[in-house]
Design a protein around this nucleic acid. Sequence first.
DNA 1: ATCTATTTTTAGGTTAATCTAAATTTTTTT
DNA 2: AAAAAAATTTAGATTAACCTAAAAATAGAT
Lengths: 220, 220
Amino acid sequence: MQNSFTEENYLKIIHALSGREGLEVSTNALAESTSTRAASVTDMLRKLAEKGLIHYKKYQGVRLTEAGEKVAINVIRKHRLWEVFLVEKLGFGWDEVHDIAEELEHIPSDHLVERLDAFLGHPRFDPHGDPIPDAKGNLTEPDYFILTEAQIGEKVRMMGVLDHAPSFLQHLDRAGITLGCLIEITEINEYDKSASVQINENHTLFISLEVSKNLLVQRR
Amino acid sequence: MQNSFTEENYLKIIHALSGREGLEVSTNALAESTSTRAASVTDMLRKLAEKGLIHYKKYQGVRLTEAGEKVAINVIRKHRLWEVFLVEKLGFGWDEVHDIAEELEHIPSDHLVERLDAFLGHPRFDPHGDPIPDAKGNLTEPDYFILTEAQIGEKVRMMGVLDHAPSFLQHLDRAGITLGCLIEITEINEYDKSASVQINENHTLFISLEVSKNLLVQRR
DNA sequence: ATCTATTTTTAGGTTAATCTAAATTTTTTT
DNA sequence: AAAAAAATTTAGATTAACCTAAAAATAGAT
């Protein structure tokens, strides 16, 4: 049987909230993320459990089953491939694609996804640096770390963002911080933990702790 | 307010059934085309009328209003642009794209459509030869005619199909009849009205009346 | 012009996904 | 360990899009 748009969204969100460890996700957390009320979540959980997509015991929170995980990862694959398409082929900014991809991710056709993947050249990462699961559902999280964990004087490469909010991404655009750029931390301000950084060995600026906390980087 | 997937489909189908003249469409015809029952159609018509998208008087059939026409044409524009994308960019066959485009046509983003249109080079026709409305909603039907109306000895160019069924399109593929090919009618068989035709001045074959009736051609 | 057949609408239900309010269970605090 | 607080579930409605069966309106045939 087919999963609805709504069911796919629940599975995707459960996947996101349960993290790598597959922790139990609470009803309230789901209500928050789906912008619905807890009572509505309970209804949906019963339904997903009946379909064998989640492990669910009343009052105990939920985890995805193997089957549910598969569906969730496929939705994520589609979402990220469409984001690549929108940015690489249609010229959208990385701050503009989330909502559109949110719709496109539910178009049901394996044939379509595989052809899109090939058309895009089998990209490994989406425009925000998130890894794209392969056709078999293998999703390998790269071991990026948060900029706040880098040392003063260290040169790192910007590989992704934790916050996908358009306003945050636009802020990075204005600061000239793009995926793949080089960041060197020259100084940390003790007072507010803001950092002086040099981008691409070429211009210097201050970034707040809030920004640093949302930048994923890699040692070179 | 936003129109639902279902509402858009009704408008699209009313547009198709009412033809160029904007004839009244019957409830039963809509039930047939939407694969629902007449009672369900009546419910929807009342709703569309309330939204000002159709002219509807009980027992009198329906016509689109200006507003409804605009929505319908925009859906058609999106459908046909996505079909071009699927065939030209992803390499699908013209017999494979209808169902997928049927989903993609309801993705709501004007920005997306306009960028897609530009990416595709502002195509005027979709892979079946159907004209693509422009961004302002102008839809000019080219004056193609049906192959059955061509004379013996006449050379015409294949410009479109009336039937979009995969089986019909696959049949044309096997016969080597593609969009833009040259067709010369060499003979009409009196008995069953089948025709002998020469394709691209290069191979000859028989085509049934059924096929001829579904081929749109142009005098050269 | 009337009767019959067809078409369309109304009336009353169903299902998926939501809601509010109330009841229940779990967790936290004292 | 009891009371209070928080989280979760149940109960009972709502809305969109559908359904069946019955009633009403239109169209067709004599």
